[in-house]
Simulated assay, not measured.
Amino acid sequence: MVKHVEPDQILVKMPSLRAVKSFVAAAKYQNFTRAAEALCVTQAAISRQIRELEASLGVSLFKRAGRAVELTEAGTIFYDAAYLSFVNIAQAAQRIQNSDKRKQELTICCSPAFSAFWLSARLPGFFAANPDIDVSVVTTNNFLKMEPGVHPDIFINKVSDPREGYHSIPLFYDLIYPVCSPLYLEQNPEIVDLDVLQNHTLLNLSPYGRSQIAEHVDWGVWFSSQGIDVDIGPGGERHVFNANDYNMLIQMVLNQQGVCLGWHQLVSPMIEQGWLIRIGEAEAVYREKSHYLTYSESRQDNEAFRTFKTWFLGCIADEQTSVVQLEANS
């Protein structure tokens, strides 16, 4: 038995879209002849469609003055709604027609430090090689709790498989050494001696900030890895500045305001460009603490994701080669 469907009152009462289209054109150009030219029809057709529309609505939509026409109050109200509706329909149709031509998109989530010091230095090369792929970057200090509506395709952080439906690939481990500006080292060459370095201004990443880079390392831990016991607590004698923003610490280093620990994958581009300089040969290596590329399994066959993954892992492989050489020489 066929179920009876009640008439849809909105659709039933809708005036003819062809008539509305003619009306919008006439109202836009304020001239029936120009409206006819714009729609590639005759003036008589425009006039007929508008008469039918006015009869359907029971009001006059135009005040006619020779060849020119002006909207009535009712015509203005109807034009405002009709024109906006046609614009929305036209734009939606255009998006559908161009759906196969649209750029591919990826959303990447990482820490502010990784975004500022790693991605920003390398993404221009990716864009140059892949102009058909758009990348959106979301930075956060809380990878386990995203804002509503944010569903990244890729995470770059220190948490393996942080949520259901994602898979993680290990990237690199932590290699950490002190860095300062070239001018600071020139003015304080004695800081290559760790016993002297510990008495200079130490810029320290506080626990909240460290959780996004290397939560187990601060100046106290780093000095301990070198066999030196240093008290950097509130009661300590040394001048230690704490902040949870690694970007801020690096900026302070660039401004000759002290020394901070450098995570190799973040500071190596600035060292290569001469903005920062490594202090001495001492370093701490934590092979058990990996960073991961975590991606949505629903995107693993996506062409844009595969392209980005190949490029990204290639960058990491090149950098790991330099890390191995760096460790071999130290």
Results as ranks from 00 to 15, higher is better:
V150T: 12
N130M: 04
S168D: 01
I176P: 03
I156K: 03
F155W: 12
Y184R: 02
E190C: 02
F126G: 07
E147K: 13
S211Y: 00
H200R: 14
S206T: 04
S168P: 02
L183E: 14
L202A: 08
P131E: 11
D195H: 15
P189R: 07
D174A: 15
D195W: 09
V150E: 01
I133F: 10
S206H: 00
L203T: 01
D195E: 15
P162L: 11
D161T: 08
H200E: 15
S160T: 01
P162I: 03
L123S: 08
T139G: 04
V137D: 03
N188S: 05
V192P: 12
R122C: 08
S211R: 01
N204G: 04
P207C: 08
R122I: 14
L171Y: 06
S211V: 00
H151K: 11
P182I: 09
T140S: 10
V179P: 08
Q187N: 15
Y184Q: 02
L197P: 09
K145L: 14
L171S: 07
I191Y: 11
L197Y: 11
P189E: 10
V192M: 14
P152A: 00
S181M: 01
D174C: 11
V138F: 15
D132Y: 06
D193V: 11
S206G: 01
L197F: 13
F143K: 09
Y177D: 00
S160D: 12
I154W: 02
V137L: 13
A128L: 11
V137Y: 03
M146C: 00
T139W: 00
H151P: 00
C180L: 07
P178M: 07
Y173V: 01
V192Y: 11
D153L: 12
